[in-house]
C-alpha cells in the first residue's frame, strides 16, 4: 500500500495533502489587510506561506502545480471540507486552525517517522505545523478564557466546525498511518486545549449525514466553488499563458 520511491508517488495522497494545504493557505490569504491587529497580519501570513510551500511541493509530486491548482474542477479537489470553510470571524478561523493543525501535526509526525515518499516533506513541514498549532492554541486560550463575548464566539466556532472533524481520519489511499490512533490522539489534544481554554468539548456528530469521507472523494461545500472561481478565474482567462 505504501509507495516507496519517487517513481511510484501515490498521487491520491499527494493531492489530498496538497489540496488541504493549498485551500487553507488561500483562505488564510483572504485575511490580508483584515486581521484584528497588525501583529496578527504577520502571523497569519506566515502560516499561509508555510502551507502554500507545502502545497507546491506536494502538488509538484503529483504533476504540474499550476495545472493542478488552476485547471481542476471543484469535484476533482481532494481537500478536507474543514480546510475550505470560510474564514468567518477570527474565532472561526482559530477553531479551524486548531482542528486542522492538530491533525496535520500528528499526521506529519507519523509520516516523518516512516520511510514513505512523504517522509522528507513531513520532516520539514512538521516543524512549521508545530508552530501553527501553537499559534492556534495560544489564541484558543485567550479567546476562550478572555471576555464573555470572546468565550461565546469561540464556543460557537468550535461547535460549528465540529462536524467537519471526523472526515480527517478517513484513511487516504497511499498514506500509511494509524488513523484510529491519530483520531484518538487528536481528540485528547483538542480536549486538553479546550479544557484549559474553559471551553466545552463540542458534542454531536463529527461527520455530516451524507458526506462521510466527502472532501477526499471530491464532494465539497457550496462556498468552495466560489472560492475556486475566484482563485482560478485569471489563470483560466489566458489559456497557455506564462506568468
Amino acid at each position: 500500500m505504501t509507495a516507496t520511491g519517487p517513481a511510484t508517488v501515490p498521487v491520491t495522497a499527494a493531492l489530498a495533502l496538497g489540496d488541504d494545504a493549498l485551500v487553507l493557505s488561500h483562505r488564510l490569504g483572504e485575511w490580508a489587510g483584515q486581521a484584528p491587529v497588525l501583529e496578527e497580519e504577520v502571523a497569519l501570513a506566515n502560516i499561509a506561506l508555510d502551507l502554500l510551500g507545502q502545497a507546491r511541493f506536494l502538488l509538484s509530486m503529483a504533476g504540474d502545480e499550476d495545472e493542478l491548482a488552476y485547471l481542476r474542477e471543484e469535484r476533482a479537489f481532494r481537500n478536507l471540507q474543514l480546510a475550505e470553510q470560510p474564514n468567518g470571524d477570527f474565532a472561526h478561523t482559530i477553531a479551524r486552525q486548531l482542528y486542522f493543525s492538530t491533525y496535520q501535526q500528528l499526521l506529519y509526525a507519523e509520516l516523518a517517522a516512516g520511510e514513505g515518499p512523504f517522509a522528507p516533506l513531513a520532516a520539514k513541514a512538521v516543524k512549521e505545523v508545530t508552530y501553527h498549532r501553537d499559534h492556534a492554541e495560544q489564541w484558543t486560550l485567550r479567546l476562550g478564557d478572555g471576555t464573555e463575548t470572546s468565550h461565546e464566539r469561540m464556543r460557537r466556532a468550535c461547535e460549528a466546525l465540529w462536524k467537519f472533524t471526523g472526515e480527517m481520519f478517513q484513511p487516504v489511499e497511499g498514506l500509511d498511518a494509524d488513523w484510529a490512533g491519530l483520531d484518538r490522539r487528536w481528540q485528547e489534544s483538542v480536549a486538553d486545549v479546550l479544557g484549559r481554554a474553559t471551553l466545552p468539548l463540542p458534542e454531536g456528530p463529527r461527520t455530516g449525514a451524507w458526506s462521510a469521507g466527502a472532501g477526499r472523494q471530491g464532494l465539497h461545500t457550496e462556498p468552495f466553488g466560489r472560492m475556486l472561481a475566484e482563485m482560478q478565474h485569471l489563470h483560466r482567462s489566458h489559456p497557455g499563458a506564462s506568468w
Binding site: E39, V42, A43, N46, Q138, R142
Partner: peptide
C-alpha cells in the same frame, strides 16, 4: 519593539516579525 497582550504572545509576535 512591538505590541502584545502578554509575554508569550510577545515572543511569538517577535518571532514572526523580526525573524521571518
Amino acid at each position: 519593539s512591538l505590541h502584545a497582550p502578554d509575554a508569550e504572545m510577545a515572543l511569538r509576535n517577535a518571532r514572526d516579525l523580526y525573524t521571518r
